[in-house]
């Protein structure tokens, strides 16, 4: 018996690191997640501090200094990224544009998230007729061409920030509903849910304290992906002239305004496009990363 001391290499500790430690290790080892979250954070800070960071007023026109080249193409530090066709400072417009993109992305994702989650969880939890109605609504929603409907509605109601946010929020709930329905279906049959029901917990209580905590990981992933989706759609609507209206600085609008000059001054199109690409890429990487580190099947 004296041999069975813990020093024996065969008796090595079986209890591994705690789940929290595992999660931390996974987050630290996930380059995509770190990069994505980092970029999103930086852009968020820039958007919040826009009035402090922007070197100029983004609306101030200076027709004498139109289309000044950026500093890396022979311009001056007065306008680091040059000026647009109305002589407005491009860097300042980009910085304020981050506000528009992030605001539209987050509020639209919030609205559609609330609608879609409510529908999906109700369908998954109650099943039967509720499920049939929700599934039907999802089918109807998927059948409608998003860009076309959004454009038409914005054209009818007029293109303000609020209208664009509302339209996108009301159109992009489908993926929330689909994923939340599937996740709820999975969780609903677990023993702890039956246990809560058996001790007489009310339906809202079961949903809020038994179901939601177990599907919130999936919800966060969809929130990020739909935020990226909304940002891209806003840019497309604004590019087509039926989204955010001038002179509001929106990256999609900046690409559209630069389009006519792109033959001679391609940077007018390149710069806002690259920034848009980087933001959407970062949000997507963050979403994918969150899915990777929280996915239950890879938790072993």
């Amino acid at each position: 018996m004296a041999l069975q001391e813990p020093i024996d290499p065969l008796l090595e500790e079986i209890s591994g690191p705690t789940p929290r430690q595992i999660l931390r290790k996974r987050v630290q080892g996930h380059m995509g997640l770190l990069f994505g979250a980092g970029v999103v954070l930086v852009l968020l800070v820039i958007a919040i501090l826009a009035p402090v960071l922007a070197p100029h007023d983004p609306y101030l026109q200076d027709l004498a200094n139109r289309m000044v080249k950026p500093v890396f193409m022979g311009g001056t530090w007065e306008h680091p990224l040059g000026t647009d066709h109305l002589g407005r400072d491009y860097l300042s417009r980009l910085i304020y544009g981050a506000r528009v993109s992030l605001l539209i992305g987050s509020v639209a994702a919030l609205i559609s998230g609330v609608i879609g989650t409510a529908m999906g969880v109700a369908a998954g939890y109650f099943g039967g007729r509720v499920d049939a109605v929700v599934t039907f609504l999802i089918n109807v929603r998927l059948a409608m061409p998003v860009v076309l409907v959004a454009l038409a509605v914005v054209a009818i109601l007029g293109g303000s920030l609020q209208v664009v946010i509302a339209v996108l929020g009301l159109l992009l709930w489908d993926r929330f509903a689909v994923v939340m329905r599937a996740s709820t279906l999975q969780v609903r049959r677990r023993e702890y849910v039956s246990a809560a029901q058996a001790i007489g917990a009310s339906t809202p209580r079961v949903i809020l304290s038994e179901i939601m905590p177990n599907i919130v990981n999936n919800l966060i992933v969809i929130v990020t992906l739909e935020m990226a989706h909304a940002i891209l759609l806003e840019a497309a609507l604004s590019f087509l002239g039926l989204g955010v209206q001038p002179p509001t600085p929106s990256w999609g609008l900046m690409v559209s305004e630069g389009k006519n000059m792109m033959l001679f001054e391609p940077w007018l199109v390149l710069i806002p496009g690259v920034v848009l690409f980087v933001l959407v890429l970062a949000i997507n990487l963050m979403g994918d990363g969150l899915r990777d580190v929280t996915a239950p099947d890879s938790r072993s």
Binding site: M1, L3, Q4, D8, P9, L10, L11, E12, I14
Partner: peptide, 19 residues
């Protein structure tokens, strides 16, 4: 027992009554 790393001796010794 875990078989990760160098395995020396009899692997059953941790459960054997005659170790």
């Amino acid at each position: 027992p875990s078989l990760i790393g160098d395995v020396q001796g009899c692997a059953f010794r941790t459960r054997c009554p005659h170790v």
